[in-house]
Design a protein around this nucleic acid. Structure first.
Lengths: 296, 296
DNA sequence: CGTGATTTTGAAGCATTTCAACTCTGGTGG
DNA sequence: CCACCAGAGTTGAAATGCTTCAAAATCACG
């Protein structure tokens, strides 16, 4: 049809948005292939002709920005122009409850928060994860009710802004409006990429990408990535990634055997990422192998 | 937990869209369970204990609003307060091109538009579908570049608004700001539900839901639902729903054999929905059968 | 009317789910 | 201190739904 147009764009895009690599790693990923350690011989189909293309710009972790610390600017803007209440929460503390009237947007200034959508017949869905600088609550604006529960996963501090006041301030301070829209738009783009990843990536690749992005987010906030606690059960991770908890568990063991992740001293709910590059490389190879659900 | 609230919403929703029955089958859908016609006997696992719960509030079709014609208000607001250019497009016409600098938001006033993300190695992804009243381009705000291509699928009219001017107008006219935020938030919520559906629904259920929601959107705009052209290839639908075009094709045949959809006189790219209720019922049963990837 | 794209259909392969058994951990109380 | 338990995690074997591959049928269009 108009493949020419789109192919041109594809080329432009490949050059334009390397996106996913964190600032920490310079540029030494010439190892363009990954091989499982002692994998069964004919177990996996040989990879098709190796192709050079853009790494999928997926972001599995909430509102994490690709580089730098853009949240500091937003936090400063808010501190200056919008009244807000500062809430300190312990692990399990409630930020908002699903279906309650939407009144506030929240910004996370410390800790970690998970959003959960209580599903029918008690089957909850882990929707998103948030770290410092992330906004929480956008999805309640349209309906007038909060769309999901939000709980602190750790000692956290959230700033809760009255939405009406925020609108007023944003009308006066255009930088605030811009930041607000950028945050919403960014979440939109990120959600979309997660959806595409769900369609495209194998289970192993999704788990690997999840760990990679989470570790990157920690790194950007100057937290340890060689040893950290996820504070999520396998079931929650499975819900987040669209697979069963057994599959999550198996993926973790495979990744650990491959040396791509390490488990902590205190049980297998702690883990570490020895090399972010290796993880990224693995994801790229996995995605190359599995290329279903795309056009043509 | 708060299942009562969700069930209320479900009831309101189910009752709201009687859609257009094509005379043939008036309203005899008291059968609350769906069974495939001449399915092989032990082919499918018997359904678990039938549960009454909310049908998943999934919306596969772009920005379609659940009820009424809320877009008319937005269009009027814009016409009054924001300068815009009115563009008429024929099928295949370009609304925006991926990776070009983000300058405009678009509102669709007539026709249909598809947004496509040009993937690596020529594998495009159908991202979203849009009808009258839908906004296009939110995902470009954050990055400053358009995140996807947008093409008219049919004779269409788009209003293109300069984003900066829109911000200015929204600062003065709060109703405009509210509408803008509601649209963004709604798209966020819809994208999220699509992601959950991808994780939860079987292929048949996703195709059925896709057809159902599209037909409902047409109905809300007073267009025929008993015979309409999709103007999408099976590959595009597959990309949209996260499956291969063969699986889409098979799902269509199964749905047609089950009497849930009908093919048009001019080939199988036209189809009709005899009973929106029956389709909805089918989706509900399918989702009951398959309940993976949720917590606990 | 032929050529290429789209669609359908079948058969085989495979990744993930499902079901089930077992281990590990932390907490509680005798 | 240990027994005990429940929840979380791991692991294996079987089932299954979707993909892949291949080929035929249908449609679109010059």
């Amino acid at each position: 049809m108009d493949a020419s147009i789109r192919n041109n764009q594809a080329a432009a895009r490949a050059g334009s948005a390397p996106a996913s690599l964190p600032g920490s790693e310079p540029a030494r990923q010439q190892a363009t292939t990954f091989a499982w350690p002692q994998a069964a011989p004919g177990n996996r189909r040989p990879a098709p002709t190796p192709r050079v293309h853009a790494p999928a710009p997926v972001s599995y972790c909430g509102n994490v920005e690709p580089d730098g610390q853009p949240w500091s600017g937003v936090l400063a803007l808010i501190e200056e122009h919008v009244p807000f209440t500062r809430r300190r929460l312990r692990a399990g503390g409630v930020v908002q409850i699903c279906a309650s009237p939407f009144k506030h947007l929240h910004i996370l200034n410390l800790g970690a928060v998970k959003t959960i959508c209580p599903g029918a017949n008690g089957r909850d869905q882990l929707i998103d994860l948030h770290l410092k600088g992330d906004w929480i609550g956008f999805d309640g604006i349209a309906s007038g009710n909060c769309a999901c529960d939000a709980y602190a996963m750790d000692t956290s501090e959230v700033w809760s802004l009255d939405y009406i006041s925020l609108l007023g301030a944003a009308s006066r301070v255009s930088a605030l409006m811009v930041a607000l829209h950028a945050a919403m738009s960014g979440q939109l783009a990120r959600d979309r990429e997660r959806r595409l990843a769900h369609d495209t990536f194998s289970a192993d690749a999704r788990v690997a990408e999840f760990v990679r992005v989470w570790a990157r987010a920690l790194d950007q906030r100057h937290l340890r990535t060689d040893q950290f606690a996820l504070r999520l059960t396998r079931s929650e991770i499975g819900s987040y990634l669209g697979m069963t908890h057994e599959t999550v568990s198996r993926a973790f063991t495979r990744l650990e055997r491959a040396g791509l992740i390490r488990f902590g001293l205190r049980g297998r709910r702690e883990l570490g990422v020895p090399s972010a590059q290796a993880l990224a490389e693995f994801v790229r190879c996995e995605v190359d192998r599995t290329e279903a659900c795309t056009l043509q």
